[in-house]
Amino acid sequence: MIQLAAGGGESYEAPTIAEFWQPLVGDGAFALTRSMVVFAVVAIVISVVLLSITSKLKVVPGKAQFLVEGTYGLVRNGLARDIIGAEKFKPFLPLLFALFTVILVNNLMGVTPFITFPTFSRIGYAIVLTAIVYFTYHGVWIARLGVIGWLKSFVPPGLPGWIVPFMWVLEFMTYVITRPLTLALRLFGNMFAGHFMLLIFTFGGEYLLFHASGFLPVTGALAYVFTLVMYGFEVVVQFLQAYVFVLLTCVYIAGAVADEH
């Protein structure tokens, strides 16, 4: 309990961990949660929109087709082709486009009225996408070099023999552990932090504005103003996180298909 009202009995009770667990049906590991519903709705909406637009393509695109083509062009030309290479990027393009759209739309749910919940503020969803990327680029890498060649590729050629074991351990840790760990945590951390900040300013501002005394209601009004600014900033962060996730995926795939490996 945090006592904020100087002369009254009103007090502000901080949210507990239990309030971040929001099962809609059931409880425990098999509960139907809010994040599951949001992710399922987003998947259905993306599928319906893309199928609807691509089945009726026009020479002069409308707003929806222009938006989809612009997103596809960003992933295809601005990321996949430039990073992976013009000769090798096409097999990975469906995966990269799917990753970008799924991450971006789910992130934007964090600023969508009546939802205000970014799915990737739950780390499990970030881990699943990272696992897909992880097995993709390591699978391509192993398929091209074989298991022995894959293990050997962690050490650059020409190193002194005494340093090879140390370098192999460092490179193995980087490619097999650090990369997937940071890829998942980066997406989860930014979405969780942004969502948490919006909750703090929204509910804290509501308490200060309507329940506190003295000059504190003024700070509550300022908190709401700052919340609007945070919403705009959060949209930028949500787009950047989708972009960075796909960009790093392209970098990892480019390394897996590179001739020097």
Score class of each variant (00 low, 15 high):
Phe196Asp: 11
Gly28Pro: 07
Leu247Val: 12
Val176Ser: 10
Phe233Met: 14
His261Thr: 09
Pro113Leu: 12
Thr54Cys: 07
Tyr231Trp: 15
Arg186His: 10
Ala86Arg: 12
Gly161Cys: 00
Phe39Lys: 14
Val176Leu: 10
His261Arg: 15
Val38Ile: 13
Val155Pro: 03
Phe89Ile: 02
Ala64Glu: 06
Met191Glu: 15
Gly124Ile: 15
Pro61Cys: 05
Gly73Asn: 08
Ala221Leu: 15
Ile148Ser: 03
Gly204Trp: 14
Trp150Gly: 05
Gly70Lys: 08
Ala242His: 03
Glu19Gln: 10
Thr178Met: 09
Val25Glu: 03
Tyr125Leu: 01
Gly194Met: 06
Val251Gln: 11
Gly161Gln: 08
Val49Arg: 12
Tyr175Trp: 03
Ala40Arg: 11
Pro156Leu: 03
Ile2Pro: 05
Tyr137Trp: 01
Leu108Thr: 04
His211Thr: 01
Gly139Gln: 05
Phe192Trp: 10
Val111Cys: 08
Phe245Tyr: 07
Leu181His: 01
Leu187Tyr: 02
Ile83Met: 01
Arg76Pro: 09
Phe188Thr: 13
Leu93Ser: 14
Ala212Met: 10
Pro156Met: 00
Ile83Asn: 00
Ile123Thr: 07
Leu145Tyr: 00
Thr71Pro: 00
Arg179Met: 14
Gly255Leu: 09
Gly139Cys: 07
Glu87His: 09
Ala80Glu: 04
Asn190Asp: 11
Ala184Tyr: 00
Phe196His: 11
Leu93Glu: 15
Thr130Trp: 03
Val244His: 09
Phe188Glu: 04
Trp162Asp: 09
Lys152Arg: 13
Leu183Trp: 00
His211Ile: 01
Ala126Ser: 15
Ile177Gly: 01
Thr119Ile: 11
Phe210His: 11
Ala80Ile: 02
Met197Phe: 13
Ile84Gly: 13
Ile127Arg: 08
Val42Met: 07
Ala43Ile: 05
Phe196Ser: 10
Lys58Ile: 04
Arg179His: 15
Leu74His: 15
Lys152Leu: 03
Ile200Thr: 06
Gly62Val: 04
Phe196Gly: 09
Cys250His: 01
Leu248Asp: 09
Ala212Trp: 01
Val244Ser: 06
Thr119Gln: 03
Leu248Tyr: 15
Gly7Met: 05
Leu248Gly: 02
Trp168Asn: 00
Arg81Asp: 14
Asp82Trp: 15
Thr71Arg: 09
Gly139Asn: 06
Leu198Pro: 10
